[in-house]
């Protein structure tokens, strides 16, 4: 079962991702509400998630910065960047995000990207 870490500063968005992913058979192994918390959780867990769903605009540390730091620790980590800021796509991809999904997205679009990167 593909495991996922969700990083977003909005509690209701985190819950939404959890609802969607669990319904479609994914295992949510952790959540973080800013980039720094994501780094802390990522670095201290031995069981790394298969995929990280990363928001951009978050307090303390944004998603681009957090993605860069996580990929320094593990260059093979797969990150799906999800943001309402379409202009951040290039920055996110340059930071190493494997996919970019603009908000609001259709549920099937998220699942398609999950399937694609889970099987790659």
């Amino acid at each position: 079962m593909t495991s996922v870490l969700i990083v977003d500063d909005e509690m209701f968005i985190v819950e939404l991702y959890r609802d969607i992913l669990q319904l479609r058979g994914y295992k949510v192994v952790g959540t973080a509400f800013d980039g720094e918390e994501a780094l802390r959780k990522y670095s201290t867990t031995s069981d790394k998630p298969d995929v990280i769903i990363m928001d951009h605009r978050m307090p303390v540390m944004n998603g681009v910065q957090a993605t860069k730091e996580i990929l320094k620790m593990n260059p093979k980590q797969k990150v799906i960047f999800v943001s309402a800021d379409v202009l951040v796509e290039k920055e996110a991809r340059d930071a190493g995000a494997i996919e970019f999904l603009p908000k609001p997205f259709r549920m099937d679009d998220l699942i398609d990207k999950m399937k694609r990167i889970s099987s790659s």
Partner: peptide
Amino acid sequence: VSHDMLNDNQAVQSYLELILA
């Protein structure tokens, strides 16, 4: 403001999609 509105719309849209599923 628009960022927050988009997040709200994301939640409404996705829950409707969950209902439809």
